[in-house]
């Protein structure tokens, strides 16, 4: 039990997928201008990343490894993720329209979110068991949401401030992200 707890903490804070592993930076900068879009994106990522983590783990262990075709990993993972996203979108549209309205536009964007693909590849690379992979995927997604919401809050404030013209928007956003990364860096010694 403690092992899983340590794994979760290390995935959320120490190896935060955005600020320490640099995965999923495009949506990080793209959807962080407003708190609502940031929250929507975070929820969508939690939803998809956990499912993608589980399904790619199963694909890799029971399909690619027994058949000795691991070199097709990149191709099969991206196909699994793309079809999963499409499936989730259709499922939500039919059965939970309220949630679909909230996540709607963020779902297709997730296909090219490298946080999802990256987390799946890390799960395989670290040779996690099924339960570990599930916990790690969930924690990575939570870490992603945490960093994104934190960053969106800061960015909303910065947008009110008067900033020199060349530094505006993305440029200062990146410097701010650097500062947040610095604070997350303090967790390094923990696990």
């Amino acid at each position: 039990m403690t092992d899983y707890f340590v794994l979760a903490i290390s995935c959320i804070f120490v190896n935060n997928i955005l600020l320490a592993q640099f995965l999923g930076n495009c949506p990080f900068l793209g959807t962080s201008k407003k708190m609502e879009t940031a929250a929507g994106m975070s929820m969508a990522v939690v939803f998809v990343l956990v499912m993608a983590g589980i399904i790619t783990w199963i694909t890799d262990t029971y399909l690619l490894k027994p058949l000795n075709i691991e070199f097709l990993r990149t191709l099969s993972f991206i196909l699994v993720i793309a079809s999963l996203v499409q499936f989730v979108e259709m499922f939500l549209k039919k059965s939970i329209p309220g949630l679909y309205a909230g996540l709607g536009i963020f779902l297709p964007l997730i296909t090219t979110n490298c946080a999802v693909m990256g987390a799946c590849l890390i799960n395989i690379k670290e040779e996690y068991t099924f339960l570990q992979a599930t916990v790690a995927s969930f924690s990575y997604a939570i870490g992603f949401g945490l960093a994104l919401v934190l960053f969106a809050g800061l960015r909303e404030r910065i947008n009110i401030a008067r900033v020199p013209q060349p530094l505006q928007d993305t440029s200062l956003g990146l410097v701010t992200a650097g500062m947040i990364a610095l604070s997350f860096y303090a967790f390094k010694g923990m696990v």
Binding site: L19, A20, F22, L174, A181
Partner: peptide, 8 residues
């Protein structure tokens, strides 16, 4: 060379 430096 660490994460924060990249962003900045």
């Amino acid at each position: 060379v660490k994460a924060p430096g990249a962003f900045v």
